Amino acid sequence: MVDPTSDLGTDVDESDAPTCATCGDPIVQSATHRVVTWIEDGSVRHRHFCSDDCRDAYDG
């Protein structure tokens, strides 16, 4: 997976792209890409979502 702080719109192919935590689709050059970040047990955690709908539907 690519560095989540990088520009995900450039030079990322589907095999290296993050996947949506809800539907599992690769997220490549998507204007609706959302990342939710939180701290858990002293570590930074994050989840990628392909859209607001997938973020809202996530049950994790």
Rank of each mutant, 00 (worst) to 15 (best):
H33G: 04
I39D: 14
P18F: 11
D16K: 11
G9M: 06
V35H: 01
D11L: 00
C23Y: 00
C23K: 02
P4Y: 01
D11E: 02
V28A: 07
D13H: 13
R34T: 12
T22G: 04
T5P: 01
R45L: 08
D16W: 02
V12E: 01
E14D: 05
T10E: 13
S43L: 00
T37W: 00
A17C: 06
D25G: 15
S30C: 10
I27R: 03
S15D: 12
G9Y: 06
I39Y: 10
A31H: 08
V35Y: 05
S30Y: 02
W38F: 10
V12I: 15
S15Y: 05
V36R: 15
P4N: 04
I27N: 04
C23S: 06
D11F: 00
W38N: 05
G9A: 08
D41F: 12
D7N: 13
T37S: 03
L8R: 10
G24S: 10
P26F: 08
T37C: 00
C23L: 04
H33W: 10
P26R: 04
R34A: 12
T19E: 12
A31T: 08
V44D: 07
V12L: 06
A17W: 04
T10N: 11
D13M: 12
T5D: 12
G9K: 08
C20D: 09
S6F: 00
R34V: 13
T19G: 13
T32N: 12
R45F: 07
P18I: 11
H46F: 10
E14N: 03
G9Q: 05
D41Y: 13
A17G: 06
P18H: 11
I27G: 03
D7F: 04
D13P: 06
P26L: 03
A21Y: 05
G9I: 03
D7P: 03
V44H: 05
D16H: 08
H46D: 03
T19F: 07
S43R: 02
T19L: 06
P18D: 00
P4C: 03
V28H: 03
A21H: 10
L8A: 07
T37K: 04
R45C: 13
Q29D: 15
T5H: 08
D7R: 07
P18Q: 06
D13S: 14
P18W: 09
D13A: 12
H46G: 01
D7E: 09
S6Q: 11
T10F: 11
A17P: 06
T10K: 13
P4S: 03
V36E: 15
T5S: 08
S43N: 02
R45D: 09
T22D: 11
S30P: 00
W38M: 09
E40K: 04
D16S: 13
V44F: 01
T19D: 11
W38R: 07
S30F: 02
